[in-house]
Amino acid sequence: MATGMRVWNPDGSIKFEVTTRLTRLLGQVQTGNQDGYLDVPNQGNQVFFFIISNNPAQPTRGIPVIGVSGNRLSWTFMENVRTPCTLYYGLW
């Protein structure tokens, strides 16, 4: 019999098992209202994720476009309205 951990949803479908990928939050950065980038230390062949969050009182227009290239997480504003955001980043 196999051993490990499994968690089921109320409907009987598997919600989590030992092969499910979990995330690890590495940090956060404030974009301000200028284009920029952050070099994340090499973590092997893992996949980056990011979440962008802005103040609800700020307009949602003008948030930056986010890019990932190698170990670099970059942001570029494409509009004249530039809404400062917080980028949370990590590994998946």
Rank of each mutant, 00 (worst) to 15 (best):
residue 50 F to Q: 00
residue 79 E to N: 02
residue 27 G to N: 12
residue 45 N to S: 13
residue 13 S to G: 01
residue 32 G to I: 02
residue 26 L to C: 09
residue 30 Q to M: 08
residue 80 N to F: 11
residue 24 R to L: 13
residue 85 C to L: 07
residue 92 W to R: 03
residue 48 F to W: 09
residue 52 I to Q: 13
residue 90 G to P: 10
residue 65 V to P: 00
residue 53 S to N: 13
residue 44 G to T: 15
residue 7 V to W: 02
residue 51 I to H: 05
residue 47 V to K: 15
residue 52 I to G: 06
residue 6 R to N: 02
residue 17 E to A: 05
residue 37 Y to P: 01
residue 31 T to R: 08
residue 9 N to H: 14
residue 58 Q to T: 04
residue 26 L to M: 04
residue 68 V to W: 11
residue 6 R to W: 02
residue 52 I to F: 09
residue 7 V to M: 01
residue 73 L to H: 13
residue 47 V to H: 00
residue 27 G to D: 07
residue 29 V to F: 09
residue 70 G to W: 12
residue 77 F to S: 13
residue 43 Q to I: 07
residue 41 P to G: 09
residue 69 S to F: 09
residue 4 G to L: 07
residue 12 G to N: 07
residue 78 M to N: 05
residue 83 T to Q: 10
residue 54 N to F: 04
residue 26 L to R: 05
residue 25 L to S: 14
residue 2 A to W: 06
residue 12 G to W: 04
residue 35 D to E: 07
residue 49 F to N: 00
residue 72 R to C: 01
residue 92 W to F: 05
residue 54 N to D: 06
residue 36 G to C: 07
residue 17 E to I: 11
residue 41 P to A: 14
residue 86 T to S: 09
residue 25 L to R: 15
residue 51 I to Y: 08
residue 48 F to N: 06
residue 41 P to W: 10
